[in-house]
Amino acid sequence: MSGRSTPGNDFAARSWPMAVLIAAFALLPHLAEGLFSGAIRQILTTAFVFGFVAFAWNILSGYLGYLSLGDHLYFGLSAYLCAYLLSTHGISPFLSVVPAALLAAALAWSLARLVAGLRFRGTIFALVTLAVAEIGRVVITRIPAFKGEAGIYLQLANDPGNFLFTNPLVYYYVALGLLGLGGVLSLGAFHSDWGLQLRALRDEEVAARSLGVRIDLRLSQAAALSAAAFAIAGAFYGMSAFFVTPSTVLTIDIIVTVLIVCVVGGLGRVWGPLYGTLIVAAVQIGLNKVGLSSTTAATWGHMIYGVIIIAAVATGAVLRLPDNAFARLRSALSRPSPR
């Protein structure tokens, strides 16, 4: 199980199932045109973006085991920044997503630093991130330039330089690409020394720290990575919808969906977010087909998710059993470094 000997080959061997899946979804619009309605395209596009952030969130909350419940703030912050800069200053989101992601990462980093030294930090981290996201939601909603509850609307135009496309299929493919990127990130992180340290901290925190693994540093890094991914996804989401409002990009539903995706697929597993994405997309397509009125469907959908989360924790789909990460970290550290 060593990812250190021949990383290249191992990577290919481990990632081909996802590559096949992504290729299948890439061909879907062409092979099954009848099946591929507008509603299904939209559900899949959103599901892929959420799958992408779920991969990054899973590194923080699954591998390391610190649940972050406030990452929707970074999603919304970035969506707002990009939409605002484009609509008033004409700055391309390709440019503005970079500072947005850096800002998100810096915020998440400092929040993790604040919490990392405290007792009961698992609980504190989860609830404090949620509280900070709530602060951010209120503040962003009150910034006059962001137009409050009304939000910012973008001109419906075909403008590739500003990531605006009238053909929604473009967004579908970009979302699919993001999903693949998330998978590569997840796989790479899992088998790296860095990821091994995260998992060792989750399983045996005190013992891992005794080997010199710094919880504060790893928590900050993982939180920043997740935040940056949420920022990228937020920018994408705002552009693809052509508008941003607090109730679409700053809602707690975002983080709950990501949590559901991870928990259903298996929190802490490499491909957990991918399975979760497929299951959640299937549920949504199912609800769409049943054709309930949208609010009732949402209520029932949420109830189903609540039951699914409970069931997933109950059946142990959430991987928390020690997977010997600590023992492997110790042997990895005692082995002479190949570098």
């Binding site: 085991g65 419940l69 698992g122 609980t123 609540g306 039951v307 924790v313």
Partner: peptide, 21 residues
């Protein structure tokens, strides 16, 4: 485990919230 507890009780919370709604 705090993380598992939060995930589990979050599931309970979502269920209760939408049941009430």
């Amino acid at each position: 485990d705090a993380g598992l507890q939060i995930a589990l009780t979050l599931g309970v919370a979502i269920l209760l919230e939408n049941l009430l709604a």
